[in-house]
């Protein structure tokens, strides 16, 4: 869907390129997360996709078409963009802000209005309450929701989201993330998502692109990156709790010893505790709560296996290479 081929950008007056040798693909319906420290070039990469910045060299294709050959304004109307600074129009009401792109596309008034109400509802705002307010009357979290609604307004197949949940406290951020992932299950949009928060990256990403000093240092699914970090930089970025993060992405079912046949008695297992599709992290939590070193794993209400502390430990040692 999006193919970026060896792009490079040096800003006028800069000694080194802000983005260099960057190549990646984003598949249709995926969230591709760009993660890296401040100033590493994430925003610059994103803005080259909708031509707010022109690359010095390299090519960008969307659905096989070279973006450099498209009219920039037309291109941008088909790409939802959530900018890092939110950038709501202060002189327009919330409704008018969300209606911006439909307005540019000359949608009929009724259709636009209906869409706006639907979107405000969708991002968790009460249209009747905030629709007629102005941006300065909203909280930071509310403004970010409006920013997301505005980007979604014309139902673009592609979204560029630059730290869309950056300006809110951790609790609200987690709620916004969860809500967005729930929406994405039905939207199936192709998304480029920028963050400098590795936890957000792992949670939101189908695919991670780790950037440092303008270059890609590693790409892969979250579990690939977690289990085989390319270098010390990635290792540090992932943090000291890499093992726990892996357990959060590993399903209990994949580590259990399964029963050949359902046992007649559930001696020592304490019945159904976790579901096979739940992360191992939950199983660990249950073990601690029950003061036991094993839990029964179920599929629906049928017990299918047993997960032990030893097998979890062995798995961590195997994938992260920390153990003996």
């Amino acid at each position: 869907m999006i193919r970026v081929d060896n792009i490079k950008k040096t800003f006028p007056g800069a000694n080194s390129p802000a983005v260099d040798q960057v190549t990646f693909n984003v598949n249709e319906g995926n969230i591709c997360v760009f993660v890296g420290p401040s100033g590493c070039g994430k925003t610059t990469i994103l803005r080259m996709i909708n031509r707010l910045i022109e690359p010095d060299q390299g090519d960008i294709f969307i659905n096989g078409k070279d973006v450099l050959e498209m009219n920039p304004a037309t291109l941008r109307r088909t790409i939802g963009y959530v900018i890092q600074q939110i950038g709501l129009l202060p002189h327009r009401t919330i409704e008018a802000n969300v209606a911006l792109v439909p307005g540019l596309l000359k949608w009929p008034r009724d259709k636009t209005r209906q869409r706006v109400l639907e979107l405000l509802e969708m991002v968790g705002l009460r249209p009747g309450e905030v629709g007629h307010k102005y941006p300065h009357q909203l909280s930071g979290g509310q403004m970010q929701r409006v920013g997301v609604a505005r980007a979604l307004a014309a139902d673009p197949p592609i979204m560029l989201m630059d730290e869309p949940f950056g300006a809110v406290d951790p609790i609200v951020r987690i709620r916004l993330q969860d809500e967005f992932l729930r929406l994405q299950q039905t939207f199936k949009k192709t998304i480029c998502f920028v963050t400098h928060d590795i936890n957000e990256a792992i949670k939101m990403g189908d695919y991670l692109v780790i950037v440092n000093q303008g270059r890609i240092v590693q790409m892969g699914t979250p579990i690939e990156v977690l289990t085989s970090p390319a270098d010390d930089f990635v290792l540090r970025l992932l943090g000291d709790d890499r093992g726990v993060k892996i357990l959060d992405l590993t399903r209990s079912g994949s580590l259990m010893e399964s029963f050949q046949a359902p046992p007649k008695t559930s001696a020592g297992i304490n019945g159904c505790i976790v579901q096979a599709i739940q992360p191992v992290k939950i199983a660990l939590e249950m073990m601690m709560k029950n003061n036991s070193d094993q839990v029964g794993v179920c599929s629906g209400d049928k017990i299918v296996g047993i997960l032990t502390w030893n097998s979890i430990k062995a798995h961590i040692n195997r994938v992260s290479g920390d153990g003996p």
């Binding site: 900018i83 600074q85 950038g87 709501l88 002189h91 540019l104 505005r150």
Partner: peptide, 27 residues
């Protein structure tokens, strides 16, 4: 006019004149 607002307009696909008359002038 706050550059990030102009940037948002541009990013949404407004043309230079639309930015002038729909964002810069009213602001």
């Amino acid at each position: 006019v706050d550059p990030s607002v102009i940037d948002a307009g541009k990013g949404m696909g407004m043309t230079g004149l639309q930015i002038l008359f729909k964002i810069q002038v009213p602001m």
